[in-house]
Design a protein around this nucleic acid. Sequence first.
DNA 1: AGCTGGCTATGTCAAGCGTCATAGTCTAGC
DNA 2: GCTAGACTATGACGCTTGACATAGCCAGCT
Lengths: 203, 203
Amino acid sequence: MTSDTRAKMVAGAADLMSRRGVNATSMREVVRHTGTPRGSIGHHFPRGKQQLIEDALVFAGKQVSGPLEHLVQSRGAIAGLRAFIALWRQTLEKSKFQAGCPVLAVAVEQYVNDATEKDGAPDEAAQRHLLDLADGVFADWQRIMFTALRREGVAPARARRLAALVIASTEGTVAMCRAARSAQPLDDVRQELELVLSSALPK
Amino acid sequence: MTSDTRAKMVAGAADLMSRRGVNATSMREVVRHTGTPRGSIGHHFPRGKQQLIEDALVFAGKQVSGPLEHLVQSRGAIAGLRAFIALWRQTLEKSKFQAGCPVLAVAVEQYVNDATEKDGAPDEAAQRHLLDLADGVFADWQRIMFTALRREGVAPARARRLAALVIASTEGTVAMCRAARSAQPLDDVRQELELVLSSALPK
DNA sequence: AGCTGGCTATGTCAAGCGTCATAGTCTAGC
DNA sequence: GCTAGACTATGACGCTTGACATAGCCAGCT
């Protein structure tokens, strides 16, 4: 049903975005990188690059939230934190610190498409929509952490703040690891976050 | 001595990088944005865009580390944390959540220059150098925080981890605020970080 | 057999990019 | 006054990009 080619393009776009960023990821490179046919782009993504990025974004979001949600529900908040961080560590190390988080890339860059913006003004609505999607992914991850903390007895406001801290610091650390080409920051941050969470849980 | 035009270009490049990212920041736009002459680019930056980015990067680093170092030395680690976060909050709000951190942009993207890379391989050395500079900036900020914590009695290893947590989570939060177009995450994270630091300081 | 519709192949288009080269302007020092 | 050198203006070159158009392929159905 949903074409295999299409899925490969979305996954390839997510990967390239996590390495190069949004603007440095061209559709031509996506098809080169995935061995998919260039002619199919217009077919599978009639709205063009914007649509491909959108799909790659929610794809990347689900790829994390799926396992995370499952693990958090079966083994609790701290195990979820460990898994979340381990997952990023794996992404970093497997790619020799070249790949990062595509969602972060969208949140940090501004997608500009010269082709569709002949008039001077950049398409504000398109950019807003991408940010909305990125925000949605972050919110989703945060919600998973939030729910786990609530279930383990943390007060609502505190749980919200802690969830924000976990997601934000992990994302930031991934970028720092990329810059340092080392996983050391991830270890440091994980250690401190575990301390914070375990001391926030009621004894 | 150092030309005024040159300084404006560097500052403008840093600003644009913080809004659009590295690859979406073109030299032509830098000169448009700063009202500086296009012809001067080659004069002030003989190594081209790469050099402009490098300069913008260390410029942005110093712009933060200067005030931060001063404040931390006179009023301590927690005041430094507050100032660090307040500074980013200001950047976000003044730009209506359009500007972020140029250093983070370099850490998240991969700078590709089609003009100099006619051969298939992207210039790996250039990219490595940019990452080194970004890593240096992060390390510098971290060092300031680390020193303050040490001075206030925190053990070395712990101080290193806490400094990493502070920098990483702040950077990540800035990106999240941009996605959400809200400063709420910054507030949440600041609150939790203050708790962490104050409970880590010896009573 | 014939058609039809999902998919693929390939080329063109306008626009932007970074770089380079050439020529012009301004100013400080003699 | 003049000249040297720092700076600025402008255009060309070769390239890539996203979008679009045209044409071809190849199942599955009638």
